[in-house]
Each structure stands twice: as C-alpha cells, then as structure tokens.
Design a binder for these strands. Sequence first.
DNA 1: ATGAAAGCGCTAACAT
DNA 2: ATGTTAGCGCTTTCAT
Lengths: 331, 331
Amino acid sequence: MAGVSRATVSRVINGTRNVDPLIQQTVREAIAATGYVPNTAARSLVTRRTGAIALVVSGAGSPGPDGGVRSEVFVDPFFGRVVSGVVGFLRPLGMHPVLMLAETAEARDQVVAYLRQGNADGAMLVSTHAGDPLPGQLTEAGVPAVLFARPDRPIPISYVDVAHQDGAKLAADRLVERGCRDVATISGPLDVPASQDRLSGFREAMARHGFPYVPCVEGDFTQGSGEAAMERLLAEQPRIDGVFVANDLMAQGALLVLRDHGRRVPEDVAVIGFDDSSAATACRPALTTIRQPVEDMAAEMARMLLDRIQTPQQRVTSVIFEPSLVVRQSA
Amino acid sequence: MAGVSRATVSRVINGTRNVDPLIQQTVREAIAATGYVPNTAARSLVTRRTGAIALVVSGAGSPGPDGGVRSEVFVDPFFGRVVSGVVGFLRPLGMHPVLMLAETAEARDQVVAYLRQGNADGAMLVSTHAGDPLPGQLTEAGVPAVLFARPDRPIPISYVDVAHQDGAKLAADRLVERGCRDVATISGPLDVPASQDRLSGFREAMARHGFPYVPCVEGDFTQGSGEAAMERLLAEQPRIDGVFVANDLMAQGALLVLRDHGRRVPEDVAVIGFDDSSAATACRPALTTIRQPVEDMAAEMARMLLDRIQTPQQRVTSVIFEPSLVVRQSA
DNA sequence: ATGAAAGCGCTAACAT
DNA sequence: ATGTTAGCGCTTTCAT
C-alpha cells in the first residue's frame, strides 16, 4: 500500500464517510498508479452481493434437434428493444445483465437455482406465455424480481406494463374516425393478460362509438398466425374495412394476405398494429400502430429491481406506461 | 457436516480423484439432504475463475436522447440466432452469458475493464462494423476471446466464420441456372470482410459462368439501404433479371422496391438473399437465400472459448462452416 | 485416502 | 478519523 491501511482504502473505494480528504486523495492516486482493481469475488464473499442481475426470457422457443433449445424468442423485434432498454439503464452503473432463457420446467428450475445460489442478486422477467410458473417460483424463493408485464395470476410481485386498453382505444378511435364501419380484430393468445386487455379495450371503445360487437380471431403473435387470422376474417366478413391487430408481426402478416386478396390498404381496409416494433416500418404500406415505450419500460424495470435489491422489505409496486398512436400509411 | 471434513466434501464436489466411493456416497446424500450449494464467490476467490463468460455485441446502435444508447442491433434477427446458439450450448453446462453492448469507445473500455477485473473468464464477440478495436484490446489485455467472424485486420485471435465465397457461388450458380443474363448484386459495407468475401465470391463465380463484370451497389445491411440500392440498380440497369443481395434484410427491401416498380419476382427478376434469417420467410415472395448455420456457429464459438479458458496457452484456431442454398420462391 | 491448516482479497465490527 | 482484527466459504498444499 502507499501509506495507509486496507480498511481505509476500502472506505475510500466504497465512499464511506469519515475519511480525511487528504488521505482520500493519496489513496486515489495510489490506486491510479498501481492500476488496482478490487476483486469482485472477495467483495461479494463478504457483502453477499454479486452486483449481477439476470434478464430472464421465459416461455418461448422449442426443443431443438440436438436436445438443446432453439429459441424463437428473438425473432420478435420486441425483445431487442427490451434488451436495449435494460442495457441502456444498467451500463452507466457498470452493470450487465446475465441472459437466461427459460422455456422448459428444467430451465426454470435452473434459473431459480442460479439465483438462489447467489450468482445474481435479482431477476427481470419477461414472460411471453400464459401460466408461467416462474414468477411464482421466484417470489417463493425470496428472489428479488420484477416482471415486464402484469402476471396472469395475482402474485405479490412488482411489474411494469403499458395501458393496453388505452392503446386499444386509440386504435378504435382512429379506425372510426377514418370512417370504418366493418371492423374486426386479430388478438393475441387469449390466456395472456395483454391480449385480453387489448381485446376488451378495443371492444369497449368500439361499443362507445356505437359498434356493439367486434368479431375477433385469435392469433399467437407470430406473423404466420396473423396471415391465417386475416384469411379467416376475409372469409367470414368479406366487407371488412378495418382491422386492429394485437401486434405488428401479425399485422405484417395481415397486410400480406390483404394484398394477396387485392384489397388496398388503407383505402379498402385500414390496418392498425401494436408495439411500433421494427416490423412496422419494414412492410408496405408502413404500419400505423400503437407504440409501447418498451425501452423506457425496460429501463424502469431495471430501476425497480435495483431498488428492490437495495431495500428488500419494501412493498411491491407497478408502473404503467401510456401508449401512443403512431400514424403511418396503413390507417 | 455429516461425517467428514470440508476438504473431502470439496473433493467430492469437484470430482477430484482419490475419494473412497463409500464416503462419496455419504457426502452426496448429506448434500442432497441439507440442500447445500457451494458459494460461487468463495470458490472463485480461490480458483480465480468466475464461471461466467461475456457475449459482447460490438458496433451497432446510436446514442439515444437520454445520453444512453438505443441499440439497433437486435432489429437484425441474425443476433437472435447467435444468442440462441450460445445459450443452447451454455445452458446444459449451467452457464449463462453476460450480455454486453459495445458501440462506443467508452463502452468498449468498460468491457475490457469488466473482463480484466475478472467478472467473467472470457468473451465471445460479435462485431458488426469494420475497424472495431475491441478484438485488439481484448488480446492485448490477455483476455480469452473468440470472434464470430474473421477480424478485418489480422489479429492473433480465434474465430468462427462461414465460407462466404462458397455461399456467394451457390447464389451465382442458381441465378445462372435459372437463365438470368443481367445480374447485379447489392453488397454489405465494403469495409467488412464478410461483405468483401460475398462480393468477390459472387463476381468470381459469375466470371466462371462467362459474365466478366457484375455491377454492385453497396448497402449497409439494413432494409432501407436495400431499398435504396435496388432503386439505383433499376435506374442504372433497367434490364436487370437477377440480384444477389448480401443479407436478407436488404433483400426484403429490394423485394418491396421491385414490386413498386411492377417487376414480378422471380419471373422478371430473381432475388437471392443471405443468412436465412426470419426475414426470409416474412416477405412475399419468400426469399431464396444462402443459409448460414448461425446457431451451430455460435455454439462452436462458445465451445472454443471454454476450451481456451481451460487451456489458455493453446494456439488460436478458426472454424469455418459451409453455407447452403435454401430455395423458396424468389429465385 | 483423508484431515489440518493456510489463505484467496475484501468488508465490517470494534478499538483507539 | 484511522488502524486492528476477524471472518466470509471455499480450495489446496502438506502431513499423515
């Protein structure tokens, strides 16, 4: 050491009070001179904190040919935005998320074990399918955790979410305003709260506009399901002139089918998506869509988790973001 | 403890030889009974290994409004496949990658510091832009690292890659076989080795077929640049009847422009992409494309890194994968 | 083949 | 305000 005891150095590094400014100075210079870096392992051995947090993506992907898992999670550009938001928040803090995929029961147990072992201090969880037991497992294990969306069953766990119903209302207002009279919707999987909310919000808003019933075909958030749903809609409701689709990927599929059927968008049929993902600008006509501030939501999720790790006893909270209408060509 | 000393328990857990089978049995039972899990921090304090490895995505994204960074990395479905392959390989080993984005010099330094501090034992690096200094920084710092693609400058570092030239040749052969006579290509950024290889490989293969010169417009791997490039190609070479596009995202853009111009694909103009990403099936007509076995490559990258961490003194190596032609509708 | 003991680098009482 | 001391939980020589 260059002058003082290790304890003092420790205090300087961790910014504990009660250190002579002069000595602080000396210590900092010594640190800079020697290129000293604190050993993370030793530190976390005593503090019981690792400084790492997990980003868990749960419930998407399928068993691969090699027994491994080929995840389809990341084909939805939505996840890229989540990652982006999380990293954007964490990086200035010198933190980086540990990425974990949890599609199978085995993988979920592994996640829980990993967290319990103290490899990470907490978890952010973005779950795509209904009935995901992971949030429950995590709370049960006493692991600090925050979800990206409201859990489908009430669980004492914090989360961020978007006001899906408000978003759906924006879409309904827009379609009606455009003069659509024969409106339908393509929903996401109806066991997912987000899908339910978007559907109910849309139906309610349409009802207020004097359209008591809105037909709905259920999709699964993939482009292919959007195509299939649009085909059905066209068959069952040939005079359709407006569609609210629960995400952009499905909307993209719907657009393809409409074109195949010679329907012009937006002249013959107006289409509104949800998410404002990169898919929205990747198709022709570009999608009018409901924007979720995903990056901000993800950043908030990270912030909440850090909060929770620092003050574990606090009550669970939720933060709901407002969506907005992004007008492009499709409606 | 249930019977023996900690040293013995340690030996059992770490599979060191010279332990009485009977005692092994006893110890395992005790472990199971007590639900004991070894403390990672304590272990890595003495072993100097953390058991964590970093997945670094370098060189994409732009400074965001809040001073953070809004990465556009993940809009290319390519990255999802890399993540998928890496996780698929790592998970059975109980390992999970730490995700790091490194677009700015500051972020790169942070990555290096993180690794040097021993927060992770090594890094996998997928770099998208030319002249990335990170591979050099990593080797210099003595951090075990493996790249996803050949570095643009020769550096003593291991990597996996695909035989770009072979892929380009597959495309050339296909286009010629279809009877295309007026062929052009849309390349990626020409300072990236992969782009160069795809271009040179394509030109060489076309030359062998008796087409001495192939016009080329440079893109940047985004859909928008693909659109712009296709516009130019159509203007400069109106009789064009075949295009090889250096990735699927740009090919998707080219498809849109061709449609806008009333050219039928593949009847009037045949289009071949590269990657076989999810974009290939997301457009109409679905893209005929050159498939990179990205997941396998990513898994191999992870394997190589683990190898290197275990045996640091070994020589650097490279593993090159063969691409394949995936025939869909566009050519 | 097993146990005893030292120590990895740090933080946090406690003492001064 | 600073130094002293005692561990955190594990692996690993070194004895036996």
